[in-house]
Design a protein around this nucleic acid. Structure first.
Lengths: 92, 92
DNA sequence: TTATTTATTAGCCATATAGCTATATAATGA
DNA sequence: TCATTATATAGCTATATGGCTAATAAATAA
């Protein structure tokens, strides 16, 4: 599993963005409106998520639409469960 | 879910330590031996994990034994599944 | 072409992180 | 008490992060 996914998911604002995008695709502006941060700040968070391949973007006229890459998110969760979940076979 | 857990889990060395401790408790020295980092470097990673309450330590003579706090780890995984797992109800 | 809207990029700052070496502490044994 | 072993802490450096404002780009409409 790519390190960039862990880094991307370690920030609260970005996790919130992921949760928003779980509802469905949104424009950059719509995402910005959910936060009290400056617009470029959110833009950069979106870029971090894009570099981790957790979201994809697509221009639609003047808008840029972001949508979740559910595949990566689910693969990440599966990786976590495989490595940290399950039996917890403690000795002593 | 505490932000410190996400930060703690976002580092590869610390995830490796967690995986080691899944096998069972280990002394700080045993943990150090699994890495090519300097001893104080690992000591500090252990401290980050301790602050996130992902591990607990216990002195045993000259040794300090670290063990996984499985509760926090499992709660973290449950939180992730609750927020990011499941249906992925995409619209359009 | 010019203005407007949407969004990114550049550039700055303050703080956090992860590595290191050197030093300190804690327990034990001679 | 002194030496040894195990581990933590202090203090440093370089890089990364996350916030901001100002400037740039891209699309559209007048």
């Amino acid at each position: 599993m790519n390190e960039s996914v862990f880094k991307a998911m370690s920030d609260g604002t970005r996790r919130k963005i992921i949760e928003l995008l779980k509802e469905g695709p949104k424009t950059a502006g719509e995402i910005v409106n959910h936060f009290s941060h400056a617009q470029p700040t959110i833009s950069r968070h979106l870029n971090v998520l894009k570099n981790a391949n957790l979201v994809v973007d697509q221009r639609e006229g003047t808008y840029i639409i972001y949508r979740l890459n559910t595949t990566i998110l689910q693969e990440w969760l599966a990786w976590l469960l495989e490595h940290f979940g399950g039996d917890n076979d403690e000795k002593e």
